[in-house]
């Protein structure tokens, strides 16, 4: 090969190499089916949520309930606090990134304490997956008549009246906490869990993901109205509903408790401070799963 040809080869390879240096081997991000997400990172804080709702039983709250999108916590807020509850961006139990949400309620005698991050609005799609990661630092005992809810779905009927729809809670099973779902549509606890008394881990992040469809055709096992996964395993399917739903959906990451005690104290006291952490919340057109990635 002549010197001129070698020079041409060097030039061409130089150009190729320069082009390769700009992006050789990098993956191509071609879009997203994630409609909305909140990772509690950076400056976003809690502003990605429609509401951050510390509300005590005595009605001192940090924001209304059932309002329109945009009300509630101002953008950039990192905490909302009342006398008995608090929501804050924390760095105590990082899941992905360095921050997560800390939802904390301080139990008092026979008082229901609510603390929720709510995402609502009329723009949510007919069919979507609602995913969040949870971390329970310890086990709590649920006393007689009490409850501990960590995820809620609310609906509105055709008149615009708001109703509760699905409450996903935890029960004390002695040494573990198990999931249960109260179906307001039927007025009963769901007993059709595919896995009886699915346990959630203590001290380890776990993922809960729900599929919610408000389309009229979502009324069969093959096209259900509601499904639930724990750490990627489907544990519940609700094929249909009897009550009216609309496109209005409120999805909450909650820490709502009544009669919760700390089993580590002797004797157990109702003045326990109940804390859970949540991270990487998302609403997506496709399942997020344990390996899903968020923007």
């Amino acid at each position: 090969m002549k010197a001129s040809s070698r020079r041409v080869a060097l030039v061409v390879f130089g150009i190729l190499g320069a082009g390769c240096g700009q992006g050789c081997g990098q993956g191509l991000d071609v879009g997203s089916d994630v409609i909305w997400s909140s990772r509690f990172e950076g400056d976003a804080g809690l502003s990605e949520w429609t509401k951050a709702w510390p509300k005590s039983w005595n009605g001192v709250d940090g924001g209304g309930m059932g309002g329109d999108p945009g009300t509630g916590v101002a953008a950039g807020s990192v905490s909302n606090k009342s006398a008995s509850s608090m929501i804050a961006v924390s760095a105590a139990q990082g899941h992905t990134g360095s921050h997560e949400a800390q939802l904390q309620i301080s139990m008092t005698d026979q008082q229901q304490i609510n603390c929720s991050l709510t995402r609502t609005g009329i723009t949510l799609p007919e069919r979507a997956y609602y995913s969040a990661w949870y971390y329970l630092p310890q086990r709590y005992s649920v006393g007689p008549g009490g409850f501990w809810l960590i995820m809620k779905f609310r609906r509105r009927d055709g008149n615009g009246t708001q109703h509760e729809l699905y409450d996903l809670g935890l029960k004390d099973a002695g040494t573990d906490m198990t999931l249960h779902l109260y179906n307001w549509d039927k007025g009963t606890n769901e007993s059709s869990l595919d896995a009886l008394n699915p346990q959630v881990p203590i001290g380890t992040w776990f993922q809960l993901e729900a599929y919610y469809c408000y389309a009229p055709e979502c009324n069969s096992a093959s096209d259900p109205a509601f499904s639930l996964w724990l750490d990627g395993a489907k544990i519940l399917v609700i094929p249909s509903r009897t009550t009216e739903v609309t496109s209005w959906v409120a999805w909450e990451i909650s820490n709502i408790g009544l009669s919760l005690t700390d089993p580590n104290k002797t004797p157990p006291t109702t003045s326990a401070t109940v804390t859970l952490f949540a991270d990487d919340a998302a609403i997506s057109l496709k399942p997020v799963g344990r390996t899903g990635q968020l923007p």
């Binding site: 992006g23 081997g25 191509l28 071609v30 879009g31 994630v34």
Partner: peptide, 19 residues
């Protein structure tokens, strides 16, 4: 190589060079 998504909620495109 150029790829553009067509059926995502938010479609995007990207291109890179493959040796």
């Amino acid at each position: 190589i150029y790829e553009e998504a067509l059926n995502l909620d938010t479609n995007a495109s990207g291109q890179t060079v493959e040796p």
